[in-house]
Structures are given as structure tokens and as C-alpha cells.
Simulated assay, not measured.
Amino acid sequence: MAKADKQLTLKPLDDRVVLQPLEAEEKTSGGILLPDTAKQKPQQGTVVAVGPGKLNDKGTRLALAVKVGDTVLFGKYSGSDVEVNGKEYKIVRESEILGKVTK
């Protein structure tokens, strides 16, 4: 289980992934400043920890398709929000991750 943040004390199990959601946009593409009530929750996050993988029927672990440092997209209502050491994280199953963001 790799950790990107030295203070992170979460160790995800099986096929779970710990994400740090990206900050909500402060401005629209046209340059209009958004008040806090109008900001949408981000649906992108950075992977900060991954579990060892899910066990298959034969008892072997299946490797995850994401790794620490990847930026991923997730569903609006997926996963569980948790707070650790004053930071917000989201724990999701790998199947709830919609895709990777590539540059």
C-alpha cells in the first residue's frame, strides 16, 4: 500500500482507493467569480493510496488499474467522504472510478 502523504493514516482494503478531491473551480470559463454556494463538488481527484486488490475465486489478488498519483474521474455520489488529520478524502471502490485523466 503506497502512501503519497506522510500524514495519511488510511490503508484501503481490497479494491478500494483513497482519493483527494480536487478543489472546486473559483471562476467560470468566462471569468465570473463563483460564490461558495454555487460551486459544484469536484468529480476529479488524485489517488493517494490504493488497496492490495480484490481476491478472485482462486484466492489470488487482482491488480488495480490505478496507482498513487493518478488523476481520476468518479461519480457524483460515489464512495464515502472521510476526514483524516483535517483533510478531506473520498474512499471509493475501483469499479466506481469512471476513468483516468491523461495529459
Rank of each mutant, 00 (worst) to 15 (best):
I91M: 06
P21H: 03
G75H: 10
E83W: 04
V84K: 12
V17D: 01
L13P: 04
V18D: 00
P42G: 15
E26V: 14
E88I: 08
L34P: 00
K6Q: 08
A24H: 07
E88L: 14
A49H: 02
I32T: 15
L34Q: 04
K76I: 06
K11I: 13
G79M: 02
V101P: 03
L73Y: 14
V84G: 06
K87I: 03
Q40N: 06
G69H: 04
D81G: 08
T37Q: 13
L13V: 14
D57T: 11
S80Y: 13
K76R: 15
G86W: 01
E94D: 07
G99V: 12
F74A: 01
K67T: 10
T28D: 02
P12E: 05
T46K: 14
L13N: 09
G51K: 00
K11N: 13
D57L: 11
V72M: 03
A2H: 14
L98H: 07
E88Y: 12
L10Q: 07
T71C: 07
F74E: 01
G59S: 12
T71W: 01
A24Y: 04
T37F: 11
L55C: 01
A49K: 01
R16T: 08
K3Y: 11
V72W: 00
Q20M: 11
K54N: 05
V17K: 00
D14E: 12
K54E: 12
A63P: 09
Q43N: 08
P35L: 02
V17E: 02
L8E: 05
Y77P: 02
Q7M: 13
P12V: 02
S78M: 07
E23H: 10
L33V: 12
I32N: 07
P35K: 06
Q43D: 03
L33H: 07
V47Q: 02
D57N: 10
D36A: 14
E94P: 00
M1D: 11
K103F: 12
D14T: 11
E83F: 09
G53M: 00
A65W: 07
K87L: 09
L55S: 09
P52C: 04
G99L: 03
G30P: 00
V50L: 00
K54P: 00
L19C: 07
